[in-house]
Amino acid sequence: MLSEIGHMIRKEITLEWREKSAFNGVLLYLVSTVFVCYLSFARLIDVPTWNSLFWIIMLFASINAVLKSFLQERDGRLLYYYTLLKPQSIINAKIVYNAVLMAALGMAGLLVFVSFMGNPVQNMPLFVLNMLLGVAGFSSVLSMVSAIASKARNNFTLMAVLSFPLVLPLLLVLIKVSAAAIGGAGLVEELPNLLVIVLLAGITLVLSNILFPYIWKE
């Protein structure tokens, strides 16, 4: 199973590398959104707004980035995987790959965001750690929702509508921890909340592994 996941991830990376336009599109989306915020807020921005804005932008960029993860697979190719792999390998590979993708996106986004909107963060390592954990959690929820939405009509609306309520718990914990990181809190104080994030990510990962085979079979 591990080698199956490894092969799937390698295939995803190769595909992404060959069609850079998709990733570049999401990246541009991120930069444009940050720029729009920069222009509309005109630099008078307080710290809680900075924090919420960052996470809202991250949420929408993540949804955009993950949306295509099952859409790009054509029916014939899915059938081919079906003969080769366990369904769990596919969903796990997608989750890992999307987590890596969104981590890259998040780092780039943070860089752009800080350069435009200023940097109020006092404990940057904690902020980044929180973001990476959060991105892993996002990835398992969004990959699963993307698998559901890819089977239905009007995917983008559906993807957003289905994922918002599911992502919200995670998002609220993330905003709380990153607010603490901005205020300069230490890792030890925020450890319980970080554990909550890991727990949420773990629950969604387990659920995805159990439920994905039912979506996948036609």
Partner: peptide, 27 residues
């Protein structure tokens, strides 16, 4: 297909919703 997707989403959503209403007040 509708039945399968809906059932999967229902289970997924119920568990997360339940975790949410238990975690959130403690946060």
């Amino acid at each position: 297909k509708k039945a399968r997707l809906a059932a999967v989403y229902n289970i997924f959503a119920f568990v997360l919703f339940f975790v949410f209403i238990m975690i959130l007040p403690r946060l």
